[in-house]
Amino acid sequence: MTNTRTTPPREAPPGPRPAAGRRRGALRTYWPHYLAISPFYVLFLVFGLVPVLFSLYLAFQHWDGIGDMQFVGLRNFEFLVKDSTFWLSLYNTFVIWIMSTIPMLFLALVLAVLLNSSVRFTSFYRIAYFIPNVTSLVAIAIVFGAVFSTNQGLINAILGWLHIGAVPWLSNEWTIKLVIAWLITWQWTGYNAILYLAGLQAIPTEMYEAAKIDGAGPVQTFFRITIPQLRPIILFTVVVSTINGMQTFTEPQVLFGGNASINPNSGGPGQAGLTAILYFYREAFSNNDYGYGAAIAWAVFLVILLFTAINWRIVQRRDKGAA
C-alpha cells in the first residue's frame, strides 16, 4: 500500500528523548512520567503480585484447600502434559475463540461504519446494540438455554415450521460450541462496534475532505484512511478478544450446569463446552485440587501469551507495512 499525503505524521516524539545511560539523571528528568504510571504498578504490587506468586507456588504443591500443602515438584506439570482432558479443553477454547472472534470483529467493524454514516437515530442504535453487554449473564444463559432447547426451543420451532428437523443444539459436539460462540458474539459485537466507532469519530474530518478533493471513492477512502487510522483500535480489539477468548469461562459454566449436583462444570456432552479456564475451575474448586488447578492456569497463561504475541505481530506488521 502506498503512502498518501493524508496519512498523519506518526512517531513524531513530542516528549524529550531518553538521555543515554545515567539512571539518576533519567529519574530526575522523567519523574512526572513515572509518577503518572505508578498507580497501576503500586496496586499490582500490593494486590496482584502476591496472588500471582502464590499461585505459582501452588502449582508445585498438592493442596485440597484447607489442609496442609504437600510439595510435589514438577508432578502437576508432568500430569498436565499427559492429560488428554487438558488438551481437549485447549482445543475447545481455541475452536470457540475462532467461531466467535472472527464474526464478532467483522460485524462490529461493519456496524461501526454504518453507524458512523447514518446520521439519524444513532444514539438509539448505539444503546440497542450495547444492551447485550450490560445484561446479566445468568439471565441470558437461561434465555439462550430456552431458545436452543431441543423440544421447546424457539429455534427448533422455527426450523420445524420450515420443515427442517429439530437440531439437538445443546447435545451435539459442534452445535454446543456454536451456541457458546453465538452467545459471545451476541454479547460483544455491539461493544466492539462502539470501540471502533470511538476510533472513527476521532479521525479528523479534514482527512476525508482532502481525500475527496484527491478524487478518492468510498472504498478507497475506507482502505486508505479509515483502516490505517483505526489500526491502533483494531490492534486493541484483537488483543483483548484473544485474551478474553482464551479465558472463556462463564458462558459454558452457566449454560452447562455449573450447579448440577452430578459432575458439575463438565462442559456438557462429550465435554464439548469444557474450556481451559472451566477445566481449571473444575479441578480447583469442584475437585479441590488447587495445586493442579494452578498448574492448568499457568499453562493457559503461557498459551494466551503465545497467541497474543502472534496476533500482535500480525496486526503490527501490517501496520508497519502500511505506514
Binding site: 494486590f47 496472588p51 500471582v52 479465558q247 488447587y290 492456569a297
Partner: peptide
C-alpha cells in the same frame, strides 16, 4: 498482568 486468568488470584486476594 492482563493475560493472567482472573480466577487464578481470587483466593489469594
Amino acid at each position: 498482568t492482563f493475560m493472567l486468568p482472573a480466577q487464578l488470584s481470587l483466593i489469594p486476594q
